[in-house]
């Protein structure tokens, strides 16, 4: 799936809040078109790692390279340009509550493209159709359900056809059918547009169904225990903690 040069490289990342270290010495590569899973137990720093990758929280040490360019050592202008290639969906949607769904999705288009208002309206309608919200253009975020907000958040993240899509807990709070549809949508986006996808999740079903690369963060040792294809890690990784996580706590000691 991935070609030889990785698109995203995390090098020696150490994440900390003040002098409280969350994770240290993270090293992993993400290839173009990978569906990369950030997994680990509750409170191990998955969301913090994601925040560091999308430019919201600077690392204490190390850097994240996108196509060979270090993000955190770049100037603000370069960082903003790199961020335009990202699309991010937040845990609770984080839609701008004073704007309608159409305005939420259209804002980036209005800002960064030369499209006319009518064209933007068409793009917005198409993105909403993709996430199953056709016809909801003129609703405000407070008027739709939590699951719909998540999907609208995804539509907003996809507005600029980003190279890399980041998801923070995409299927948490969704019913099993919607969660499956979301997984299918993510696969579809990767296959049709070649989008690289980075997902923070602990939904085992999603991890094993769609992930082809991953990093496993451990809250006890505060570093990564494994990186690679989650299916492979489930069956063959030497660390019991990793296998236990991926087998819902039923892993046996390897003989």
């Amino acid at each position: 799936m991935s070609d030889s040069t990785p698109q995203i490289v995390a090098q020696n990342l150490t994440l900390a809040y003040g002098d409280f270290v969350v994770q240290r010495n993270l090293n992993f590569d993400i290839g173009r078109g990978d569906i990369f899973i950030i997994m680990g137990g509750s409170g191990c720093g998955k969301s913090t790692l994601l925040k560091c990758m999308i430019g919201l929280k600077s690392p204490a040490l190390g850097d994240v390279y996108y196509n060979g360019i270090p993000f955190w050592s770049s100037g603000p202008g370069q960082q903003d340009a790199m961020k335009r290639g990202f699309g991010t969906t937040f845990q609770a949607g984080a839609l701008w509550s004073s704007m309608t769904l159409a305005e939420n999705i259209g804002l980036a288009l209005r800002q960064y493209t030369e499209l006319s208002d009518a064209d933007i309206r068409d793009v917005v309608a198409y993105k909403l159709m993709l996430v199953g919200l056709a016809g909801f253009e003129d609703y405000y975020p407070s008027e739709i359900s939590g699951g719909m907000m998540k999907r609208a958040g995804l539509a907003r993240a996809m507005a600029l056809d980003p190279e890399i899509l980041f998801f923070d807990e995409p299927s948490a709070g969704l019913d099993p059918i919607s969660a499956k549809l979301l997984d299918d949508l993510i696969l579809e986006l990767r296959d049709s547009l070649g989008t690289t996808v980075v997902i923070v999740t602990h939904e085992l079903a999603s991890i094993l169904n769609i992930g082809n690369n991953s990093v496993f963060l451990d809250p006890v040792t505060k570093t990564q225990l494994a990186t690679g294809d989650p299916k492979d890690l489930r069956d063959n990784h030497e660390n019991l903690v990793v296998r236990n996580f991926l087998q819902r706590g039923t892993a046996e000691m390897m003989t």
């Binding site: 925040k51 919201l56 961020k83 984080a94 839609l95 701008w96 980036a108 800002q111």
Partner: peptide, 9 residues
């Protein structure tokens, strides 16, 4: 919502 603005650059 402010994080969401920042991630769009």
């Amino acid at each position: 919502e402010i994080d969401a603005l920042e991630t769009l650059g």
